[in-house]
Amino acid sequence: MISRLATAIALIAAPLAAQDFSEGSEARSWNLYAEVPATFEARVVDVMCELTGDCPENCGGGERQLGLLRAADGVLVMATKNNQPAFTGAVVDLLPYCGLSVTVDGLMIDDPEIGARNIYLVQRVKTDGGDWSKASQFTKVWARENPNAKGKGPWFRRDPRILAEIEKHGYLGLGLEIDREFKEYLFE
């Protein structure tokens, strides 16, 4: 019975999956090969909770990956990237909306050749009746949480944990000796 129902749902869901969510999107292009502008209504969810039923409070408080459960078709979209061109994820930006229904605008990455489906870069988010907020909070939150890492340059050049890894294993991660030889070649 369940398998028949699952098949029926799959058949129905297939055309839904092909819906166009680009209408009304004002997402800025990142000139990515497989990007598609996409705006849609969704509920912000803890992905692991959705999959396993293990559901801590507040979507894990920042320690869990967050997803967007799309209202139109129930597809679980992975919120992979925020709006900052600074190697920054989307958890910090979406956590305040845990469990809420929101509208998001951004870029969907759809590249079946490498298995990219429902991968999303969120650029802005709003609740029903609210104003748009840019999904660009990571660096502010990082600065607040790392008061001793003040200085010049972007956050990723100053992050204590990243610096500790590089100090221990080098930029290539292969050890300091290989790093030294490689830098001599690279900057000769």
């Binding site: 992975m78 190697f87 994820g89 958890v91 990723f156 890894e165 290539l172 991660g173």
Partner: peptide, 17 residues
């Protein structure tokens, strides 16, 4: 791999999956 190791650290530290 090794070419992208530093960037992988950056992305991982920021919570990118």
């Amino acid at each position: 791999g090794s070419a992208h190791h530093t960037c992988a650290l950056w992305c991982s530290a920021s919570g990118i999956p």
